[in-house]
Design a protein around this nucleic acid. Structure first.
Lengths: 342, 342
DNA sequence: TTTTTTATCTAAACCGATTTAATGTTTAAA
DNA sequence: TTTAAACATTAAATCGGTTTAGATAAAAAA
């Protein structure tokens, strides 16, 4: 079992002080007037003994870990997995590593993870929060801790936010459906909740309808609890049918709901798009292959991750710095789930 | 900006030594004969000052980080994302955290990540390797480092392996196709490579054919480079067509290939399953929704992650311990991509 | 020759925890 | 009264780095 080689071992082997070794290995030989001969010798010895720095020791002394925390609802969900990957890539380029965690849409888990991140000395945190407000977060992290919110946020957040223009996204989707002749359009969202993504998506939907002078019907705005998606979708469809108020199109406010719709509509022997059209917020690979393929509002996942990292780095380097929110735009990808009924 | 509270601060505030505070906070008050009064007082002060341990300091002193590395080809790929999630969950239950990284099927990246994990003081590593052999790994980690291989491995590996019975998996798939009357069956794998998953899957395919006295044809075993999947699948199909040797069924050795097949077959105006049947190794959600839905060999992802963690924990607690490989079984999930041509 | 400079290098403190080896007090036993 | 045992607590070392504030010796200037 090869014992770990420390800087003291190198110093011993080279017959110099720990200080000198540390300086050399950090490329500070020149500026500290260390002779080129000594520098070379130390470097060679370090290589020969296969020296590997202990990042805990360095982190402890420097008060910096070169790692950031990434807390998402579920890293195995396609959307968040892509986001995680994006953050990982850009972080590695900047010599940072990422500690990823799933909160499972559970507030207590999220708070515990935030706690853990600080104990693990994360220099900053990127968070897609499931909380209703940021009070508890500020209690745990303090106001100046480098934290960036992605995807979800609260009004007037103290922390910077990286998000997509949700309102515009559903507006585009609704406009699109209306342009295809649809008037009876439903939107299905996760709720009841304070999730900004969901409320903004409803707003966009309403805005579009109002612009086109279509009456907003309460029973077409459906809130679905995140832990019982499929059953509730079926219930809605059943209700519409029995009251003869079936919409001609559904906007699913995220990919889970869209998948639920796919399942439920099939189970109800309804045909997409002939009997009902579908547009999903979030574009996942599946929608390209599904039967039928599903029209979707795509989010620029890679850009979101990069913007979030960019933001967190700036905050780490200057915690006082005020950083404005970043709002990225979405793209409508038409496929075969929308029928032209004009 | 609230300064960090250290154990020294608590000691000062409580009028006791750091030693005592440390003992109390680690629940060792009783065994060290600390009076209940003192214990209570220290705990209260710790709560009031909102003390949070610095895990770097603890890790440095204890030589243990309570974190493990998880290196996968790509955490945004559905299969690996699920695996990552599984490892994360079981790790958290055991008070471990996971540092996840993607190697991008790149050998140098993988080696660098292994290096990084040791510097970050990971207590153990779970690895789905993209390397051809384990020599370099042993150079970096040493023989006794707690490392567990998942998904992929090499023959006679020094390190324990958690995997699925790949041979049996493709054998089941091939048997199934044969039972539906297919004789001209192709298998498409990622290659050329030493990836155990791929070679074993070919073996299972061959074994089944031989059992049924069907001749194994060289041009039905297709190796596809991982960076140019779709084009190569199309080329194969084109070649078969022009030589009039089109198979009636394809076994895709992983989900990427299956998706490629879906794309290419559609582009070639072929119909699944009428003109060609398809079975995929790896079951992903998409196959349930695709058109047609795709029959697949499902791997027990959750179990793989749990077994890997179980194994790594044992190794961490006793690096000398010999642990046998774990081989989990797959399940064939029939859907609509296979035609009965008997 | 004495004083400065310059060029090299280092001792020791520090980061925040854990742990070892004592230390000082009481109380109980001899 | 002396000795031993039980009790409660702590000083100091340690983990492996970085950094501050000198130290030493040789060369240059006075």
């Amino acid at each position: 079992m090869p014992k770990k080689v420390s800087i003291a071992d190198l110093a011993m082997a080279a017959g110099v002080s720990k200080t000198l070794v540390s300086m050399v290995l950090n490329g500070k030989a020149r500026e500290n007037g260390i002779s080129p001969d000594t520098e070379k010798r130390v470097i060679e010895i370090a290589q020969k003994l296969e020296y590997r720095p202990n990042l805990f020791a360095r982190g402890l002394r420097m008060g910096k870990s070169n790692s950031i925390g990434l807390i998402l609802p579920d890293i195995s969900n396609t959307f968040y997995a892509g986001l995680a990957r994006s953050v990982e890539d850009i972080a590695r380029k900047h010599n940072y590593s990422v500690i990823m965690c799933s909160s499972d849409e559970n507030k207590e888990t999220e708070l515990k993870l935030l706690q853990l991140m600080t104990e693990k000395q994360a220099d900053g945190i990127i968070l897609a929060s499931t909380l209703d407000d940021e009070k508890q977060i500020r209690d745990i992290l303090g106001d100046d801790f480098p934290l960036v919110l992605v995807d979800r946020h609260w009004d007037n957040s103290h922390y910077p936010v990286i998000k997509v223009d949700n309102l515009d996204g559903t507006k585009k989707a609704t406009d699109y459906l209306i342009s295809k002749g649809h008037q009876k359009i439903s939107i299905m969202t996760i709720g009841p909740s304070h999730l900004s993504t969901q409320t903004e998506r409803i707003e966009g939907y309403i805005k579009s309808l109002e612009t086109h002078n279509i009456k907003v019907l309460r029973n077409y705005i459906v809130e679905i609890p995140h832990n019982d998606i499929n059953r509730c979708i079926c219930t809605s469809i059943y209700t519409w049918r029995s009251t003869n108020t079936m919409p001609t199109a559904i906007i699913a406010a995220n990919n889970f709901i869209a998948l639920g719709c796919l399942d439920c509509i099939i189970n109800n022997k309804l045909s997409i798009p002939d009997e009902i059209s579908l547009v999903s917020f979030d574009d996942i690979e599946l929608f390209h292959y599904s039967n039928p393929s599903v029209s979707a509002i795509a989010q620029p996942i890679k850009k979101i991750g990069e913007a979030a990292f960019d933001c967190i780095i700036k905050k780490i380097n200057n915690p006082q710095l005020h950083i404005g929110d970043v709002i990225l735009s979405t793209e409508l990808i038409p496929r075969n789930s929308v029928k032209n009924i004009k």
